[in-house]
Design a protein around this nucleic acid. Structure first.
Lengths: 348, 348
DNA sequence: TATTAGCACTCTCATCATGAGAGTGCTAAT
DNA sequence: ATTAGCACTCTCATGATGAGAGTGCTAATA
């Protein structure tokens, strides 16, 4: 962000190297740059500039007589200060009418939110050739629509929680066998009429507060409601949708077995990804983590481009792409951003 | 099954080769066999026998001066006629009190069936180092416990289907906006009182039959019930639980990148696996598919060991292990079999 | 003074030859 | 019927060689 101190020429060269390396992961040499991008310089001049860029830490050499390769810092500068984000028109001409197609697709499966996320994740990875990740709306942040309890066997009840977004959660909870279906209905009615429209988390707080404030009114109903509600919303799951490991294996970056192991390990424990992405879900806009900038140890050799999608201005979840540091950032940012907005729109 | 014509010595040698190759994927030579397993033969004799086994198609040589490697046919004979299935005691001493541990584990999460399948799949792959696969009970075969409809937005209804096994399915379906909650309740009541205890599929047939037979009685309620029920049970999902790709990558068999691609491709399209395993779910016992015996093209280089689990004698779903043809069949069969029985037991 | 041509130098990579090692198949002896 | 002996084959690790690509430095140039 700060390092605006590169002169125009250096930027051009850095741009050329990054672009070239992104499109093909071979170290790029001075001669190649002069030929492919016809700036007015000779290879010798480019060599000098490259040497400077290397001193600054933007480029590095795999070995003495190889071309240059961007470093994480180089990508960072490229992303911040050189690269233009792709425009819709430009992108669509490469990819067909991408945005419209996509919008249509999710419109069709809008009604089944789960399924929608699966589809989005698949589309993401297929269109980008990177790994697509989508986190569904965090339960706590979604808006309560209604809850229902259905008796199931003697001492068990199925709690069905509906959110305004159309996410359906269900869970079998154990209850006092004395609790009749009538009681359950009363508890459900109580919750549904009093609290519809609040977020799941708010309701929890309100319930607890109410219990304290109105100790006098404290009756069995509310006590039971709190207890059962807390059980019902304690969804254990850390569900994240991840897709595209197979596609990513076809990238030359992962032609090495150890690289594949690495990336598999990174996405194996979904709760690690979830935790990482969850922290983003409070902030807006597109986030880019390049290689070692990445907070997750397992991803120090990968890059992540992520954006939050929202419902009525409140961030709900995250959609992201994971790929090699040699990522087409421009495209990735465009895709993640566009799709996030697309999803936000369907939620409104 | 048929080829019982090998003499004892040949069997011993084949056994030795397979065992040795399973424990370490190096072609096994005549000298090695005589040293490791002290039968009374000299290497030369073993060589002769091996040559015979090769003529019969049980062994093959990677190249002239290498040792022998079992063929698919060799494994098949080994599995059918030579190998003993591991005994509980024997296995447990290697793996701690495996069965008991496992039984305990699934008992704990019994109430949440989905979660249980996730856990089972993970345990399978972790304990075996192969890929664990579990198919949940096929919706059509499960026993209907009850269905409920909850109004959601103007023209949408959430159908909640409970099965006797504790599987909960939900789906948002579109309905005639004129349908009141009262109507929905009546439909639900009708289905719940009339059809509880039948399988999902049977109910569908019964409903249709009823509609035909009692044309006179044909009323709006039944018509609606059929329509809405059919929508509700049309669960699109092909959900299969798969786990262990990462673990399997540490096997020497998959040290080659193309092998990994292959296996990834095989398990990428879950509906392929599902379709394949589904066909097994009508039959009982443990099934073993070795390499090219495999009906799925993508798995011609892999082996599959599968068994069905049952509820009250009716096969419900399949649990399986996918690994290299050089699989520890004895262990795999034992594991799959035991776990399937374990699950069957908890369902009763 | 900034750029560039020229050139020696470095490093990789593919190719080839070499030889040790492992294992075989065959023949002749037991 | 089995086995010892031996020539033979194939792989694999090692090292040498040379082409190719790209650099850094120096001296010439605009």
């Amino acid at each position: 962000m700060v390092m605006e101190f590169l002169d125009e020429r250096s930027k051009q060269i850095l741009y050329a190297v990054v672009q070239s390396y992104i499109s093909k992961p071979d170290p790029v040499g001075s001669r190649f740059v002069t030929k492919k991008y016809s700036f007015g310089f000779s290879p010798a001049t480019v060599r000098n500039i490259m040497a400077d860029l290397e001193d600054l830490g933007f480029l590095s050499q795999p070995h003495t007589s190889a071309g240059r390769v961007p470093t994480d810092k180089g990508y960072r500068f490229y992303v911040d200060s050189i690269m233009g984000v792709r425009e819709a028109g430009e992108f669509d001409s490469e990819n067909g009418d991408f945005v419209r197609q996509f919008a249509k697709k999710i419109e069709n499966i809008r009604s089944d939110v789960n399924n929608m996320f699966v589809e989005v994740t698949n589309s993401l990875s297929m269109m980008s050739n990177y790994i697509g990740v989508v986190t569904p709306p965090r339960a706590e942040k979604t808006i309560f629509n209604r809850i229902d309890f259905i008796r199931y066997k003697e001492d068990k009840v199925v709690a069905i929680l509906l959110t305004e977004e159309g996410v359906i959660k269900n869970k079998i909870i154990g209850v006092d066998p004395g609790l009749k279906q009538d009681d359950l209905n009363r508890i459900a009615d109580y919750l549904n009429t009093e609290y519809s429209g609040q977020t799941i988390d708010e309701i929890k707080n309100l319930l607890v507060k109410k219990a304290y404030r109105e100790k006098a009114l404290w009756d069995k109903l509310i006590a039971r409601a709190i207890k059962i509600y807390e059980q019902a919303i304690a969804f254990t799951e850390d569900d994240v949708y991840v897709s595209g490991l197979y596609d990513v294996m076809n990238l030359p970056d992962f032609s090495d077995i150890s690289k594949i192991r690495e990336i598999s390990k990174a996405i194996k424990d979904k709760h690690i990804i979830l935790k990482f992405l969850d922290e983003l879900s409070d902030s807006e806009g597109v986030h880019v983590f390049i290689g070692n900038e990445n907070p997750v140890e397992e991803m120090k050799n990968l890059s992540v481009v992520a954006s939050t999608y929202k419902e009525k201005e409140r961030p709900m979840g995250v959609i992201a792409l994971i790929g090699p540091t040699r990522m087409d950032y421009s495209k990735a940012i465009y895709m993640v951003d566009t799709i996030a907005k697309c999803i936000s729109r369907t939620f409104d």
